[in-house]
Computed example of a mutant assay.
Amino acid sequence: MPATRIETRRGWIGDRRLEVIEAVQRGLLAGLQIPDHDRCVRLIEYEDDTMISPPNRGEKYLVIEITLFAGRSLDAKRRLYASIAKELAAFDVPTDDIKVILIEVEPVNWGLRGVPANEIDLGYKINV
């Protein structure tokens, strides 16, 4: 049940916001092997004067922060990074402009339906 936040500068996405969100969701599906109905992706666009980035990055620089249950393998993380980069290539986002940050949380520290997530059958594996 990853919770994903995409942050970037306003302007380059235009009216394709939902398309970018769906592209990142597809990257999550391929990389983490979560079910399609597992969706929590938000997009935040910043004005130019409210975000700085490394000088050698372009206008499409973005940070994707994914909070997820701990336990994914290095191979799953590699698939995730590659899948997101592949999906964002359709928007001409250079791989150098993509930063993905994973924040791993033990399921006991994630509340769902009023209980800790480790007490719920999620219907899919975390340790992929």
Rank of each mutant, 00 (worst) to 15 (best):
L80V: 06
I13C: 00
A30Y: 04
D97Q: 10
D96E: 11
L43M: 13
D36L: 13
H37T: 08
R9I: 05
S73Q: 09
S83G: 15
R79A: 10
V20R: 00
I13D: 01
I101Y: 07
W110H: 14
T50G: 09
N127E: 13
L28M: 08
R10V: 03
E104H: 07
D92L: 10
R10S: 13
R113P: 08
E47G: 07
N118Y: 08
G111F: 08
C40Y: 15
I120M: 14
E59H: 07
N118T: 13
D49T: 09
N127D: 10
L43E: 05
G14D: 01
G71E: 05
Y124V: 13
L62E: 01
L74E: 13
G11L: 02
L18I: 08
A23E: 02
F91M: 11
I13Q: 01
T95Q: 14
K77T: 13
I101T: 14
I6L: 00
A70D: 15
I101H: 06
V93A: 14
D97L: 11
Y124C: 09
I64Y: 04
A23W: 03
R9S: 05
I103T: 15
E106T: 11
P2G: 02
A89V: 04
T4A: 04
R78A: 15
A85E: 12
R113I: 11
E22S: 05
R42C: 12
G31M: 02
A85R: 12
L122S: 12
R17Q: 06
L18F: 07
T4P: 02
I126V: 11
K99F: 13
D92Y: 06
I13R: 01
P94C: 07
M51W: 09
R17C: 07
L43W: 03
A85C: 12
D36R: 13
I6T: 01
I120K: 09
N56R: 09
V63S: 07
N127M: 09
I101Q: 10
K77C: 04
Y124D: 12
A117Y: 05
E47A: 14
L122F: 08
K125S: 13
L122K: 13
E45G: 04
D121I: 10
L29P: 02
C40E: 09
I52N: 11
G14C: 04
A82G: 07
V105G: 08
L88Y: 06
A85Q: 06
A90E: 12
M51N: 06
E87C: 08
S53M: 10
E87S: 10
C40N: 15
L32W: 02
V63H: 06
F91Y: 03
V63Y: 01
E7D: 07
R17F: 02
E19G: 03
I66Y: 00
L29Q: 14
P55M: 12
L80T: 05
E106Q: 15
G123R: 09
E59C: 07
A3F: 02
W12A: 02
R72L: 03
L62R: 07
I101M: 14
Y81A: 10
E45P: 14
I34D: 01
I120T: 09
P94R: 11
D15F: 03
T8H: 00
E19N: 06
G11H: 01
E47N: 09
W110C: 15
E7A: 08
